[in-house]
Design a protein around this nucleic acid. Structure first.
Lengths: 343, 343
DNA sequence: CTGAAAGCGCTTACAG
DNA sequence: CTGAAAGCGCTTACAG
């Protein structure tokens, strides 16, 4: 094998006294090739260890059979599961995945998006970073006629396909469950309120209180802490209130729920008897703590599959009609009741 | 903006009465452009919302500034951390990551590799699947002059860059620690022995016994179970032996260690007093079980960074010399001693 | 069914 | 410093 150059379609053509046209046709399963010729070409290509140059093919065809994915963090359970779900579907269709992580930084997110546009990806799937509310880079994607799909954390005002969790509904269900268990002063640990997801979870909480005829107590609603230390501090303060909560809905995630559990245990507050705890996202560890933690499963893998499928559905029946569908697919998360909320 | 076509270098040239050559030079920071011309071009490009076509550029340059990554599972802590580490470094250099998962299937792994070769990636990073020992697809990568880097699970006989954990050393340390705690009948739960990683961990176990003058007891070495159920069954059998082990090194991973803990607790065997348990990989949950589980941290994020850096090091000082370095970088994992092994 | 030719959008020797 | 031209490897109307 020549150390520098790869075998091309021309090399095969030359060897067989044919033209590149025919070789290309045979290789791409075009019907207009004599069956014998095709077999010969296929055989020769294999012998010569021919590998098509996707770059050239994509350039010519004007599409890349590639989907770009931008997430805040690749190594975060929820996101890596979504990615795995996307991959499972796209792989079947012969699509590739280019993955970027924004690290929750707006600037990096913008750069990722630009790279993906330059790469001529056919579709960009994104869960926006916590930072910033300027979405011109996403508008840019749309302007370049690249299908944009948002998931989980979405920018509301952009008209794109959106795949989200029914956060409000699930949160409401969780809080109602706690009310049903007899908890009356239920506190909320909010996630960052610039994100839709967390605003919805808060809405669900408020709604559940309202439905149950319970008052909304301001001092029981605690803003999300930036660091683990600050979070611990906030929980400690909350539990030391003259009139402390008898339950906490850690709406951000299970890690904050775990933080609550640790603080409670340290102070000597009994869970679930004196304090109920509910987390969010069904991390593996929630089933093995003692007590095990009630939480909400987001069906992350499913979500990934839904995202990919919705892209292909779009493709398949896009008969020249409007390319940017503004449709929201909502996945209903599942409340998983464990010991931490069962009085 | 024209609904179909993007702005190209020619569009800019036409607008400014220049040629594509100059525009290309200005955009790529080539020195041979008049400073004023460059500024004008840059300004115009921005105004016209020009986005370079990476596909065309890469085709012309014969490289893609892309690194392909193949792992058994994207959504597995260790791998997603390694990927995050790789990304952190490659991003700085303006490289993209194409991610595939083999699902531990040899055939899918082969397909992933072929796709990456076709994509003209500059480098392929792989941790091989558990299945199969035929590595012709990897040889293929080398034959196509694509830099191949193996990590964690590596095919020994291929001459490539390898980044691995010092599994044997770490395992030995773990078992010696258990011996030091007074455990005398230490069992081993093996990982699949067709993989180097797990053979090494076993070697470390055997070595530790030898060093400590403890006998190797065949019935205490249990093969890796395919499913969770079979694993539970195997552990139950192990613990019901007439002469049961007083410690178990779950060398496969923390999940199998957790399985042991669950079975032991269910049977009523006290950990760590009656049974010591050590896992592998320092999953988040190991610090919060009760008792917390002794384990081994693999520095997965670090590993990813090391992989990416070793690629660039290679690139940077490859002055036409041998392209396939057969070098192994070993990362020393860290034994994390927790309650489950402290008598 | 097969071939000749143009073109996807860029880059880069080669002249001047 | 700028331009004209060729070419990266493929695909696809257009003829025949």
């Amino acid at each position: 094998m020549n150390p520098k150059k790869r075998v091309t379609i021309y090399d095969i053509a030359r060897k067989l006294n044919l033209t590149a046209s025919s070789v290309s046709r045979a290789l791409s399963n075009n019907k207009n090739v004599n069956e014998n010729t095709r077999q010969l070409i296929l055989k020769t290509a294999a012998e010569m260890k021919y590998k098509p140059n996707t770059l050239a093919s994509n350039l010519r065809k004007g599409k890349s059979q590639t989907i770009g994915v931008v997430v805040p963090r690749i190594n975060q359970n929820f996101f890596s599961n979504v990615i795995a779900g996307i991959e499972a579907v796209t792989y079947q269709r012969g699509y590739n995945l280019v993955i970027c992580q924004s690290n929750e930084l707006h600037d990096k997110e913008v750069q990722c998006i630009n790279t993906l546009i330059n790469q001529h990806v056919d579709c960009i799937v994104i869960s926006v970073s916590a930072e910033g509310s300027d979405y011109t880079h996403l508008q840019n994607v749309i302007d370049h006629h690249i299908q944009l799909i948002q998931f989980d954390r979405v920018a509301d005002n952009l008209e794109t396909l959106k795949v989200i969790n029914a956060n409000e509904q699930a949160s409401m269900e969780a809080v109602l469950h706690m009310v049903g268990q007899g908890y009356k002063r239920i506190a909320l640990l909010e996630g960052p309120q610039n994100l839709h997801v967390f605003r919805e979870r808060k809405a669900g909480y408020l709604n559940a209180l309202k439905t149950s005829g319970l008052p909304v107590i301001d001092e029981l609603i605690v803003a999300n802490a930036k660091t683990k230390e600050l979070g611990t501090e906030a929980v400690r303060k909350l539990l030391s209130l003259p009139n402390p909560p008898d339950a906490i809905f850690a709406s951000r995630d299970d890690f904050s729920a775990l933080g609550v559990l640790e603080v409670a245990t340290a102070i000597g507050i009994k869970v679930p008897d004196e304090l109920g705890i509910c987390g969010y996202s069904n991390e593996d560890f929630t089933s093995i703590t003692s007590p095990s933690i009630t939480t909400i499963d987001q069906y992350s893998m499913e979500m990934g599959k839904t995202i990919a499928n919705s892209y292909f559905d779009q493709m398949d029946n896009k008969m020249g009609n409007s390319s940017n569908v503004n449709k929201t697919i909502s996945i209903k998360p599942k409340l998983i009741i464990r010991t931490s909320t069962q009085k």
